[in-house]
Simulated assay, not measured.
Amino acid sequence: MPPAATIVGMGRSFDELVAEAEAAPVDGWGFAWLEGRATEQRPSWGYARAMARRLAEATAALDIQTGGGEVLAEAPTFPPTMVAIESWPPNVARAAERLHPRGAVVVATSDEPPLPFTDAAFDLVTSRHPATVWWAEIARVLRPGGTYFAQHVGPGTMWELVEYFLGPQPEAKLARHPDRESAEARAVGLEVVDRRCERLRAEFHDVGAVVYFLRKVVWTVPGFTVAAHRERLRELHDRIEREGTFVAHSTRTLFEARKP
């Protein structure tokens, strides 16, 4: 989400805000629509810049779950072989439009392993906010000495939103824990050489921002629809009107793992 904003949704009706957010396109992996409606702190490590430095030194790289290619496109230099994969058709089209002119190959894939590449095909594999991490496949397609560099969504992300709509979820809150992910990486033979985790503040300034976010980041509240959650949304609108904002928190984990 945007790191800072001038609030634009104040004073508008519940029905107007929700209808606008329902109609907004959610393809791609950019969050520009939330400008002026929501803010989220950024991790201190600067993932896109760090990824770009590694891409500049690589010979063959794979970006997993690239979305519309927005983050990958920030890198000024691609290696001689640059491949991006994505499963959602609207995102595949946007990624191809953005990345093909720079010589990158965009591959449409399923949401299930295996990755459609031969063993030891890449010396760098990257991913920003993968929905799932296929550690065994990442290890398989990495060359010896190759690196997996990624920013993961950490445990308890946006949990205030999750529990507002779904109620207490104590078991699910432990998912994506960095200790568990590190153990999974080591189990397939990767060496974790760097791991950092930060908790970050997010603010939603109108109910439309919440609707848009939940439509786009679909795993936050699985099965979310405006129709199914309209009364809770109306209550949330009233709360934001009273308090000025709805505060949630995300966690992010930076991973760097190497194949011996």
Rank of each mutant, 00 (worst) to 15 (best):
T126E: 05
R143H: 13
V211C: 05
F165M: 06
E137R: 13
R232K: 12
F246Y: 12
V192L: 11
H205E: 10
L200Y: 02
P130K: 08
R215M: 09
E198P: 07
F224S: 04
P155Y: 00
T245S: 15
V226C: 12
Q169S: 05
G167C: 12
E163P: 02
P130E: 07
V153A: 11
R196N: 06
H177F: 06
S250K: 15
H205N: 03
H152S: 08
E203A: 05
G223L: 00
A209V: 07
G189N: 03
E191K: 13
I240R: 01
D123E: 15
E171R: 08
R128C: 00
T126W: 00
R196S: 15
A131L: 14
R140Q: 03
A175L: 13
R199K: 13
T132K: 14
G156Y: 11
L161P: 03
G223N: 00
R234F: 02
T157G: 10
E191S: 12
E198K: 08
E181H: 13
A175D: 15
V125N: 10
E231C: 01
V162S: 08
A202W: 09
V210L: 05
E203K: 09
E203F: 10
L200F: 08
H249M: 11
G154P: 01
F246P: 11
V218G: 12
Y212N: 08
R140Y: 11
S182V: 15
E243Q: 01
R239T: 12
E241V: 12
G154E: 03
V217C: 12
V192E: 05
H229G: 02
C197G: 14
R199F: 14
Q151F: 07
H229N: 05
V188T: 05
V221H: 10
D194K: 14
Y148F: 14
A136V: 02
P222C: 02
E243C: 06
A227V: 12
W134F: 11
R176E: 12
R195I: 14
D194Y: 10
F224R: 13
Y164I: 03
R239D: 06
V210A: 00
E184Q: 15
V218D: 09
L233H: 01
D206G: 00
V247M: 06
A172F: 07
I138F: 01
R232G: 02
R176A: 14
T126I: 07
A209G: 09
H177R: 01
C197L: 15
D179H: 15
V192Q: 04
F224L: 11
R196P: 07
R232L: 07
G145E: 01
D194V: 02
D179L: 15
A185M: 07
F224E: 02
F122L: 06
G146I: 08
K173T: 04
R143N: 14
A172G: 08
E243L: 01
S127Q: 09
H177T: 01
R232A: 14
G156M: 00
E198S: 05
A175G: 02
H129A: 10
D206Y: 06
T132I: 06
R234I: 01
F165N: 02
P170H: 05
P155L: 10
H237M: 02
A228F: 03
R215T: 00
A172K: 05
L200N: 04
H237G: 02
R186F: 11
V247S: 06
L166S: 07
G167Q: 07
D194R: 12
E235F: 11
H229L: 03
H249D: 03
F149T: 00
P168R: 00
C197D: 13
G145I: 15
